[in-house]
Structures are given as C-alpha cells and as structure tokens.
Design a protein around this nucleic acid. Structure first.
Length: 234
DNA sequence: GCGACAG
DNA sequence: ATCTTGTCGC
C-alpha cells in the first residue's frame, strides 16, 4: 500500500497493516561504511492539517551540512499514539523523494522498533523506502527501563519482556534521556554508536535537531500564525 | 477498571 | 506537536 493512501485507513486497519509489515523488518548489521547521514522531522500547527516535512543532509561523522529538502502537504490522519507513521510518513516521503542524494542512514524523530508491534515511525519509513533508519525519540512510548545515570552517554536497556528493543541514553547532564532504537537495516549497537557521534552539546542529536529547526522556519515562512485566536473563543 | 500514551 | 515568560540550576 502506498503512503498516500494512509489517510483512508481506519485506526484498526492501520494496526492490521503494521502486523503485516512487521514480518519484513530487518535488524541487521550495516556493513557499508557511513559517509552521509540525514535527519528528518515534521512541523505543524495544531489547528491545521498542513504539515511541513524536512530532511537535512550531513557528511558523517564530521556533520558538515550538505543539503536539505522540504515538502508541504496535508494530512487528515489524526495523531494516535502507536500510529504516528500513518500521519507523518506521507509528508516525509515527499521530502525524501526531493533529495538529490539519499543519506547512508536517516535519523527520525520518534521510535524505531521500540514499539508494541516494532513499527515506530523510523522502522515504518525504512520499510517504505528501503533506507537504513534509526529512531531517536524524546520520550518513551513502549518498553521498560531503569533511569540511566546522570552522566553524559550513560545508557540503560529498554525491554519488552526479555527482548531488547531500545536504549535510553543520557546525552547531556541534568537532561532527560533520549530513546534510541534501530529502525531498519541496522542493529542496536550501531544505532547507539551513530547517535552518540551526532551529539554536539545538546540533548538532541544534530541531524534531527537541525531538521526540527528547518521545518519550523518553513512553517513560519509559509505564513503560520502563532495564536490562531480560536482557543480564545472556545 | 485504571494508568500510559512517540509527535 | 505548538504556544509562551519567567525562572531555577549548572
């Protein structure tokens, strides 16, 4: 099924589709050396169906800016915990298709396999594009873990029963950890290593951090009003 | 039944 | 996610 058709799915059908995709996930060691890396994110106004997607491309591991691509689209699929991909993947795919050169690995803002059905947005996007992806989330969705020590790069495994599904990693002292998990075509250890190499003094890894800044600029430039005053009347 | 719940 | 000012801590 093509992502452009996701908006026609009911939540139950979306869940069924995830069950179908689950069998195609590949969590393997990436043999190819990583030379380029990308960060993807979405921005939107909560009162609008317009979504701004963006992907920023960098060299790796020096993280020099190489390029970027953005796309503006519409979505009617609501945000439902566990079904984030059905709302954001279509727009991200538009931006991805505009990229002249695809990165060796793409970091997405959300979970990879640290998901009840192992289908976080990073894994879903990897399956749709065939790209190598990593999920880097700002909060936990699924999995049990112990709080990592309050020291940069302290890590703590995230489990579903006895299965390792992610790593909670503190990237900065006195800041909440981020939740890393492989998306597709890469393993857990490599995923964590790549993200570690992308930390530049902020809690969020550079690829995803820059993508976030980019899509917000695009949204504002497109003429988005902050306080759409509607909430003042409701 | 109750609490949790990516962006 | 987005909005929004100050404020507490390193």
């Amino acid at each position: 099924m093509h992502p452009s058709q996701y908006e026609h799915l009911t939540p139950a059908q979306a869940v069924a589709y995830q069950q179908q995709l689950r069998g195609q996930i590949q969590i393997n060691t990436l043999d190819k050396p990583i030379t380029t890396i990308g960060g993807a994110d979405i921005s939107f106004n909560k009162y609008s169906e317009i979504v701004y997607a963006g992907i920023v491309l960098f060299s790796y591991p020096d993280l020099k800016l190489i390029g970027n691509a953005t796309a503006i689209s519409r979505t009617s699929f609501p945000y439902i915990s566990g079904l984030l991909a059905f709302r954001e993947v279509p727009a991200l795919l538009d931006a991805w298709d505009k990229l002249e050169v695809k990165p060796d690995v793409l970091v997405l803002d959300g979970q990879g396999i640290a998901h009840e059905r192992r289908l976080g947005i990073a894994t879903h996007f990897g399956l749709v594009t065939g790209a190598t992806t990593i999920g880097s989330a700002k909060s936990r969705l699924y999995g049990k873990y112990e709080e990592p020590a309050n020291v940069p790069f302290a890590q703590s495994p995230m489990y579903d029963k006895d299965e390792l599904i992610g790593i909670a990693m503190r990237t900065k002292r006195n800041c909440n950890p981020i939740y890393i998990s492989p998306g597709h075509n890469i393993n857990m250890q490599q995923s964590v290593e790549v993200i570690k190499n992308c930390i530049r003094g902020y809690r969020i890894p550079e690829p995803t951090r820059q993508a976030h800044l980019l899509v917000n600029k695009v949204r504002i430039a497109d003429g988005d009003n902050p306080n759409t005053q509607y909430d003042l009347f409701t």
